[in-house]
């Protein structure tokens, strides 16, 4: 059978979702943001809530998310996404509101907004992309940088005695009573993409049931910031990021899972 006989409309099994615009993504080759964008949009499309969803774009690499996500979007100052999401959700309680934030945005400048939104139990969904550094500004050390990890401001590796310990935001907010569903996922292999998509779907379903805040962290690569090829960066992430940021559900149905 020739390839042109297979490429027919009736044999189609996968194509780019219509909720992503045709603009070429501004991310580096191999960046996890692209997959994260796509699975969020696929979940929204499959749940049929595109008309009722409002996304909040952060500051960071994904500042232009509103250019790529073909839904209603709002772009907010650095770290303030959960605060704006709170306002939007309280004005329109029947809309789905999600924020899409990086680790510099959510875990550094926006720590207070994040923690208080989680503690109040706002019915919003937070998608947190964690790559361990400030990607857009040139790979500086972020609160999530691993001990000993090299970045442009820690060229000899992060010294915990001098620079403090990295912060595990996802475990931190899991202990707050307002959160209902918390999970940590990755998007570097086909299996992890499927799992991450399920987690995001569950997060939006939590919001539908008005149970409280849902929070999905996606451990991602930053091959430009880490100075590696995309494949090397994914391997490095598996070997170094996952032992410190273990994947899996952390809080389900309002109860922390014992591991």
């Amino acid at each position: 059978m020739e390839v042109k006989d297979i490429i027919k409309e009736e044999n189609l099994v996968f194509k780019k979702t219509g909720l992503l615009t045709d603009k070429i993504l501004s991310y580096c080759p191999g960046c996890g943001h692209g997959v994260a964008h796509r699975i969020v949009m696929e979940v929204i499309e499959e749940m049929g809530i595109a008309e009722d969803t409002i996304g909040i774009a952060p500051v960071g690499c994904s500042v232009l998310a509103y250019e790529f996500m073909n839904i209603d979007m709002q772009q907010v100052p650095h770290g303030r996404a959960p605060a704006t999401a709170t306002g939007i959700k309280r004005c329109w309680p029947d809309k789905f509101v999600f924020t899409y934030q990086g680790d510099g945005d959510l875990a550094a400048i926006g720590t207070s907004e994040t923690i208080h939104a989680c503690n109040r139990g706002e019915n919003i969904t937070i998608i947190f992309i964690n790559n361990g550094i400030y990607g857009m500004t040139g790979g500086q050390m972020a609160p999530t940088t691993l001990p000993g990890m090299k970045s442009s401001t820690t060229p000899y590796g992060r010294d915990v005695e001098l620079m403090g310990n990295p912060i595990k935001m996802t475990e931190l907010v899991a202990h707050l009573p307002g959160t209902y569903y918390i999970s940590r996922q990755a998007v570097h292999t086909p299996l992890s993409v499927r799992r991450a998509k399920k987690a995001i779907q569950k997060a939006f379903e939590t919001q539908k049931q008005n149970k409280g805040l849902s929070f999905v962290e996606i451990v991602s690569n930053c091959n430009s910031g880490w100075k590696m090829t995309p494949i090397q960066a994914n391997k490095w992430m598996e070997e170094n990021m996952f032992p410190f940021y273990p994947l899996g559900d952390i809080k389900v149905d309002g109860k922390i899972i014992d591991k």
Partner: peptide, 11 residues
């Protein structure tokens, strides 16, 4: 699934 830029269509 792993393509960050969603350039691949599968039949």
């Amino acid at each position: 699934l792993v393509c960050p830029d969603s350039v691949i269509t599968v039949y």
